[in-house]
Design a protein around this nucleic acid. Structure first.
Lengths: 218, 218
DNA sequence: ACGATATGAATGAATG
DNA sequence: CATTCATTCATATCGT
């Protein structure tokens, strides 16, 4: 799963199909980050072996810097990856009431815990035909270098220096095309994206549980 | 919906037989979940009659438990089904720019409900309903996910409301993070993105092709 | 058999 | 952190 195409996205690497003679010009220049196999491998290692679930800003920077050797990647990609990975694991656990793990109160249990849901990932090269024809545009991302923080963590200790708890509240997460003096006062304000502001809806999830599982809906 | 047939029942997907041995080395998870007619019927009932679009983990368990009576099913299947169903319906709506009389009231939402009772798609009936062209350019609708009703009540709820008034505007995504001068105060705890920090001074590109930030692990 | 479509599955990204 | 959306891949099935 964690590997669908694993294309080289650091450059305009044209994905060449190594199966059919048809010249499929698969697009990989999507807007989203397409992690490479190596990146996935490292991320998983950090996740399972190191037990990193919610890396701090410091860790994210370093991880992104390291993963950049294998392809274009930004800090936010790392952040999202961990967020998603953790969230999905939890989510899958919620879906399946099978084996509710009792809290062993052991925080050091950072072992390789496979997903109770599907720990297999397909390893193919997605060399198929084009699903449909689509016009792609080139979304060239800005190129920025990574920070050169020499913390030199050991091979096993967490990459983090122990920043503390990152609350990571709601902040505007992206797009700063307008290079203004966007400084954030220490008062603690919630920044909203200037280009959006119509997401307010009156409805809210009621989380109903009054569903009769027998014949109410039938 | 090229519905297959209710044959596999609780047994695993043995209906595939994998007659055509493709050159693909990986068959992923083999047979994916093939919902039975009863399962689909119930799912659609829950979707249309009950207005469940995004069931909570709690409901997913219950639904899966109930549907398991008609065949092997897991929580993830229910989850994916609702996710996909909702997404596809929205997708179809998106790709219908012609002759869609704009239903002003929520009553129109009920109009789009294709009568789950009469619409037994046991075989391949009603399979052709939309040409389903895929010539979508990168124009997306405004993100306004307000379909979080998930009302499991037996009462009929006007689901689907909120898809009418869309401005069809989208801002650029993936604008990279170059905030410019915005740097976070040392004592700041609010609104800081872990993935940024090094980009703060990215305005002054010192190394355009920098690749080796440091050695954290090695 | 091939192509197209329908649809399950996966995941990056975003919001609340 | 939970939930949702958008996009894409994978594949079963049908139409030709």
């Amino acid at each position: 799963m964690e590997n669908q195409q694993a294309a080289q996205d650091q450059d305009s690497g044209t994905k060449t199909s190594s199966s059919s003679s048809s010249s499929y010009l698969c697009r990989q220049s999507s807007t989203r980050w397409t992690p490479t196999s190596d990146q996935i491998r490292i991320l998983k290692e950090l996740y399972y072996n190191n037990g990193i679930r919610s890396p701090t800003a410091d860790q994210i920077q370093r991880i992104a810097a390291r993963l950049r050797h294998y392809g274009k990647i930004e800090g936010k990609n790392v952040f999202y990856w961990f967020q998603n990975h953790k969230a999905r694991e939890r989510q899958k656990k919620r879906f399946t009431p099978t084996a509710p793990p009792p809290p062993p109160s052991a925080a050091a249990a950072a072992a390789v815990i496979p997903s109770p849901f599907s720990d297999h990932h397909h390893m193919h090269v997605q060399s198929h035909h084009l699903p449909y024809f689509y016009n792609h545009h080139h979304q060239q991302l800005l190129k920025h270098h990574g920070g050169g923080s020499s913390s030199s963590s050991s091979s096993f200790v967490p990459v983090g220096s122990g920043y503390g708890s990152v609350a990571m509240e709601k902040s505007f997460r992206e797009c700063s095309i307008s290079p203004g003096e966007n400084r954030f006062p220490g008062g603690g304000i919630h920044n909203f994206r200037p280009w959006v502001g119509v997401d307010s809806y009156s409805f809210n999830k009621v989380t109903p549980e009054d569903e009769t599982p027998e014949d109410d809906d039938g």
